[in-house]
Design a protein around this nucleic acid. Sequence first.
RNA 1: GAGCGAUUAGCUCAGAUGGUUAGAGCGCAGCAUUGACAUUGCUGAGGUCAGAGGUUCGACUCCUCUAUCGCUCACCA
Length: 710
Amino acid sequence: MSNASIPEKLLKPYNPVTEEADIYKTWEESGYFTPENMIRDGLTAPDAKPYTIILPPPNVTGTLHMGHALGGTIQDILIRYHRMKGFRTLWIPGTDHAAIATQSKVEKEIQKKEGKSRHDLGREELLKRVEAFAKESHDTMVQQIKTLGFSCDWSREAFTLDEKRSLAVRTVFKMMYDDGLIYRGNRIVNWDPKGQTTISDDEIVHEARKATLYTFKYAKDFPIAISTTRPETKVGDVAVAVHPDDARYKEYVGKEYDTVFCGVPLRIHVIADKEVDPAFGTGALGVTPAHSQTDWDIAERHNLPKDTIVINEYAKMTVGDERLMGKKVLEAREAIVQWLKEERLIEKEESIDQNVATAERTGGIIEPLPKLQWFIDVNKPIPARANKTLKELMREPVGEGKIAIVPDFFGKTYFHWIDNLRDWCISRQIWYGHRVPVWYRGEELHCDIEAPEGEGWVQDQDSLDTWFSSGLWSFSTLGWPIQSEDLALYHPTSAIVPAYEILFHWIARMILMTEYVLGTIPFKTVLLTGVVRDGQGRKFSKSLGNGIDPLDIAAKYGSDAGRMALIFGTAPGTDMKLSEDKIKGMKHFANKIWNITRFVLSQEDTGALKQDLVDEFDALAKGITADLDALRLHGAAEKLYQYLWTRFADEILEASKKEEGYGATLHYILAGSLKLLHPFMPFLTETLWQLMPLSNKRQYIMIEQWPAAN
RNA sequence: GAGCGAUUAGCUCAGAUGGUUAGAGCGCAGCAUUGACAUUGCUGAGGUCAGAGGUUCGACUCCUCUAUCGCUCACCA
């Protein structure tokens, strides 16, 4: 054995829990998460190229889960790697107010605990409660982020609903309004009766259900039978539509019938429209303009009245006698079916598979209703952007490769989504969020960044879709609308690392907003992560109770082990199963590194370097660098694991026991390996770095130079 | 209905532009040992790379089809 003295700390087995505890604080106090401090202290060149990532802001609806941990770990690896590589590296953290999600969560809790609705509390009091909840949730998440070791610049922390971001929102709204891209229109919207608000197409979740398709006539003397799964809406019918080529109904097209349906008088026009599928049901469609998007469109094409509303915002009937009036839609459906049976009007009842539209946040069944709402026009040419539409502005940078989506097959999904995109409904009837910056006084309407001068102005009651403000995130976090230095330096950002689930919700909206506002891309690379599932392949969820809190992992195995387990063997954009065994295995790996260090430090750092081993290590460093540059983080992690355990520990260290003269080589490889490993396991490597007897080392491994130039 | 993906060792998954005997982790079997490390070491078993065709000197990798699973989107009432 040797005479070199082993640091006392290393004589004990590795205990990640005690070792990880204070390191983050030390890093934070050093100020080196802020790139300007790196430059000030000569650790980064003043003219270094910037490398920027903006953290996808987690919703202030609770706590972070393993999905956040995965995305954050990937970002932290990229950030730490680029910082060591000498880039002017910036990672901006922040949180998202998540309007509907947060408000409905707080509402539910208040309802449960106090039996009160938001209307019992009033706007002001509810907002107070929501903000308190959001604050608490924010603090928890920040603590989690720090525990995970994410090296973000807290001096630049942002919130989608803070003052700066709020100014950005109002400024963009005004720009779009002035450009005619934001308009107010009376259209069929997705109304969520449970949440009492509109939602956008992207906030709908379709649920497969069994439904009964009823085939019947409005009345005995009515010539055509129709099929529907929603008989209760038929009291709002204005027409029956058939396909123009359908010989069965040709003689009726153009005629009008007065009839009485379950006590409600109807005037039905028979029309021909090519949208009707002659093979479905009877091939005849009862047209209910106010309660179906398809029917609304048909009504528009045929100049039919569209104002016959029979269902209200509480999904209750507003017409008919005591059988219908005030009844919930399902009760009304039963009442009408019973009436149809009594009148012997039913021809057929069949069970069919149907997709029911529900609201993703409340689970409420969507009731299509015509309402006056604010929309963003995605098909209007924009003069300032070479007459391109927002759709084109979203499509182009991805199509032309200015933005790379990784893995690239998600690009196809992205285009498919754009092709089907309709105008974006941005107004919400909830209180938590950015208030629509529009004021009314009588017939006057005023859209501006600030409230207008003068008496009598009343602000629009609605708030904005939360994705409106998160769409600005890439540049609102950098200070826009102020033309800040940050904006000039760090934008467009280098990469964004979201879960593929929010490709449309968020990534598409950011591209839309950034292209519109700044005429440039928000980021160069979109690195998508998959869904983290439990060991049995199930999604983590509250109801299953299979969620893992990153804090629990940290307490049991150390954050480094959790981070490594998330990265190891996980290709971008693919779902992964995370088992406790895998995390445990990575804790063992951390311990292995600990012991490797103990052994190496027991050897004197003397003698000549063994060139073949040095070359081998340098080649490894090069390979890992190439992997990181190509975003193959899992490849880099596996190479390191493989080399350090199988090659360095099992072979090289063993050889050194049998033969003299390895000292300098072992120290060389260990120092280099700790640096390569640092982005993946920052706590462990920092702890060990502090024990390394190197003459020319920097204060933290975090700010060391990356061992491989490539 | 449309789009997308997956199918590789018992399990969980990697395989960057096609190139000698297909890799890892866990698990399994046998052996060893208090050695830096039992949170260990050594040895080993285990795969017709879903199936069928095609392109090629050569295919896990590219193309076509089939099967199974999964995801996303969707105004068929």
